[in-house]
Simulated assay, not measured.
Amino acid sequence: MACNSCASAKPDANNNPTWRRALWIALAVNAAMFVAEMAAGVAGGSKALQADALDFLGDAANYAISLGVAGMALAWRARAALLKGATLAILGIYVLAASLWAVWQGRTPDAELMGVVGVAALVANAGVALMLYRFRSGDANMRSVWICSRNDAIGNVAVVLAAAGVFGTGTAWPDLIVAAIMALLGISGGVQIIRQARRELAGERDACDDPLAGVA
């Protein structure tokens, strides 16, 4: 007999209405903040704001995918987590490359605009992170949502500090350094998600190969 789900009899937290509602709220917040922060980053010449905006975009896609696979078998959720982890790592690599390229551009960003938008983003992300905190110990799909929210909240603190640094030094270096750190944080988070998703997929394959798996 083919193994269709190979799942345990435990209730699936991904079917929890509270989880779904939290994802919808997080999706709306992140989509709105992506538009606002990217516009501010381009207008103010801040790579840190643009990096943070890309995080908002990645998280919005993250939440949309999580909503799409919520309630599916663990294997499908793990595959979705693999996609999200790879996307997060790729965005981090892009931001890191853009920050290195900006070293030669020489434009000093608008520190005041960075500070105001950074604080607004921090409030938005801190609220989302607190809302999702209870789900941080779930499967790779749920954990990926928590990791992205946590990374964004940390990134927002860094953006505010970068704004203070730009204001104090009159140079772009604090902005570029923070953008690079955020990029590395994104790459690290993506790798964590990919590793856990691969472990879950391997566990599912083992369970399907063993007809006695899960039998008391």
Rank of each mutant, 00 (worst) to 15 (best):
Val128Asn: 01
Asp12Leu: 15
Glu37Phe: 03
Leu100Met: 12
Ala73Leu: 08
Ala51Lys: 01
Asp110Asn: 13
Val215Leu: 11
Gly203His: 03
Val160Asn: 02
Ser99Lys: 01
Ala207Arg: 13
Gly115Ala: 13
Ala48Pro: 05
Met1Tyr: 04
Pro109Lys: 06
Glu204Gly: 04
Ile193Glu: 08
Val117Met: 11
Ala7Thr: 08
Asn62Asp: 13
Gln105Pro: 00
Ala70Thr: 04
Ala60Asn: 05
Lys10Asn: 11
Ile193Ser: 04
Leu96Asp: 14
Gln196Asn: 05
Thr18Asn: 13
Gln192Ser: 15
Ser144Thr: 06
Ala39Lys: 05
Ala180Thr: 12
Gly68Glu: 02
Met131Phe: 06
Gly155Phe: 02
Val35Cys: 09
Asn62Gln: 11
Asp152Trp: 00
Met182Ile: 09
Ser188Asn: 12
Arg198Asp: 10
Ala64Leu: 15
Ile65Pro: 00
Val116Leu: 13
Asn30Leu: 04
Ala39Val: 10
Leu161Lys: 15
Asn125Phe: 11
Met131Ser: 14
Val128Arg: 03
Phe135Met: 05
Thr18Lys: 12
Cys6Trp: 08
Gly186Ser: 08
Phe167Lys: 15
Lys84Leu: 15
Glu37Ile: 03
Trp104Gly: 15
Gly214Asp: 04
Leu185Phe: 07
Ile93Cys: 02
Gly41Glu: 03
Leu67Ala: 00
Trp19Ala: 03
Ala80Val: 04
Leu212Gln: 10
Val95Ile: 07
Asp110Gly: 07
Cys208Asn: 04
Gly115Gln: 06
Arg150Thr: 04
Cys208Phe: 07
Ala197Ser: 03
Gln105Leu: 10
Asp175Ala: 00
Ala120Thr: 01
Ile154Glu: 15
Arg20His: 10
Ala164Met: 07
Val117Lys: 10
Leu67Pro: 14
Ser5Gly: 12
Asp152Asn: 14
Gly118Asp: 07
Met142Asn: 04
Gly190Trp: 03
Asp110Leu: 01
Thr108Ala: 09
Ala51Arg: 01
Gly68Ser: 13
Val160Tyr: 01
Pro174Trp: 02
Gln196Trp: 08
Gly214Ile: 02
Leu88Lys: 14
Ser5Phe: 11
Phe135Thr: 06
Cys148Ile: 02
Arg136Phe: 05
Leu161Thr: 13
Leu54Arg: 14
Val157Ala: 12
Asp59Ser: 08
Arg77Leu: 10
Ala32Arg: 05
Val29Gln: 06
Gly138Lys: 06
Ile194Val: 14
Arg199Met: 11
Cys148Glu: 03
Ser66Tyr: 10
Glu37Cys: 11
Leu185Thr: 09
Trp19Pro: 13
Ala70Gln: 06
Gly189Thr: 06
Asp59Lys: 14
Ala78Phe: 04
Ser99Arg: 04
Arg107Tyr: 14
Gln192Trp: 00
Ala2Tyr: 07
Phe167Ser: 15
Leu96Tyr: 03
Tyr94Trp: 00
Trp173Ile: 12
Ala89His: 06
Asp175Arg: 03
Val157Phe: 01
Pro11Ile: 08
Ala124Val: 02
Ser99Tyr: 00
Tyr63Gln: 11
Ile93His: 09
Ala140Gln: 05
Ala13Lys: 08
Ala22Tyr: 03
Val160Met: 02
Asp210Arg: 02
Arg77Pro: 01
Ala13Ser: 13
Leu96Phe: 02
Ala111Asn: 02
